[in-house]
Write a protein that binds this DNA or RNA. Structure first.
Lengths: 151, 151
DNA sequence: GCATTTTACTTAACATGTTAATGGCAAGGT
DNA sequence: ACCTTGCCATTAACATGTTAAGTAAAATGC
């Protein structure tokens, strides 16, 4: 008597698992690229955000790079030690900090952005631009769920 | 909404980030449910696989639950300590083990499966069955990329 | 003005992710 | 039997995920 035999979805029909596998598929090559430079996927995300938006406070970095504050705290320490970012106190609010990317950080981005885009282009061509866009739309729509109708 | 067209894609058009956010959206409620029972999302996945497929060796568990072997090793230790699984030596191959779920483990599954299905149904209704299926199809297709043309 | 609450960040503790190295064992070739 | 090779599982080391608690400073309320 296996209760779960009929009721539980197969793993390929399980959204969490499917998301996990898809993410691993996409991140694999990127991680390999970044490993050569000595930064992790998350550190790369933080640097990218800083390169794109300029000086930010940790809370906004966490939001934009999809990291929780405890993780970000450690990552900022690491990136500071690597000389890829700098941190200064907020002029008026002493609780806050202002984080900026250094020239070395920008250089690291520049050195890897082309390869990153190449991988992105490969995915787009290999998977299909229409499907990729459809997938992104669905994912964003899913993420936006329950933004207003939160009972 | 200021979608600036820089060299780098915005985070909502970045597939890795979009996958991350979507996964967080889906897993949040499930994690909350499991936290009440004292098991993690990954431990739940392992138990589910064992409940669905019966006795398995760690390698196959890792494959089916999308876990790397080092993670699985620790998880199996934890689950054994919790009395939710049992491990025995393989009869002919002494490198392998055979892992089975215990009655307590099955009970934990049974106690939470209904709620898990309720969350699943909510997602299906809230997001739309057609869109959910389309999303799963796209994710599976993405995961299958390069499976045959690998050389 | 002062106490309370909220905010921004940090720290702690535990679990997992990730890569590399290790040890025990099996399979194949000689 | 011997050696090489490969496989299974574990361990190690470091980074992150996750929740809860802690610290300092700003905002709020009385």
């Amino acid at each position: 008597m296996d209760i779960t035999r009929d009721t539980a979805p197969e793993t390929n029909r399980s959204l969490p698992i499917a998301l996990l596998r898809a993410r691993e598929k996409v991140m694999g090559p990127i991680r390999a690229m970044l490993a050569d430079v000595g930064v992790t996927e998350q550190q790369w995300r933080v640097l990218r955000v800083l390169a794109e938006r300029g000086t930010l406070d940790p809370t906004e970095i966490a939001d934009r790079s999809c990291l929780l504050m405890p993780s970000l705290t450690r990552i900022l320490q690491t990136l500071t030690a690597k000389g890829l970012i700098t941190r200064e106190a907020h002029p008026t609010d002493k609780r806050r900090q202002l984080v900026s990317i250094t020239p070395d950080g920008r250089q690291l981005i520049a050195d890897n952005l082309k390869e990153s885009q190449r991988l992105n282009a490969w995915l787009r061509e290999s998977f299909g631009a229409d499907k990729l866009d459809a997938l992104l739309d669905l994912l964003n729509e899913l993420d936006a769920l329950d933004r207003d109708t939160r009972g």
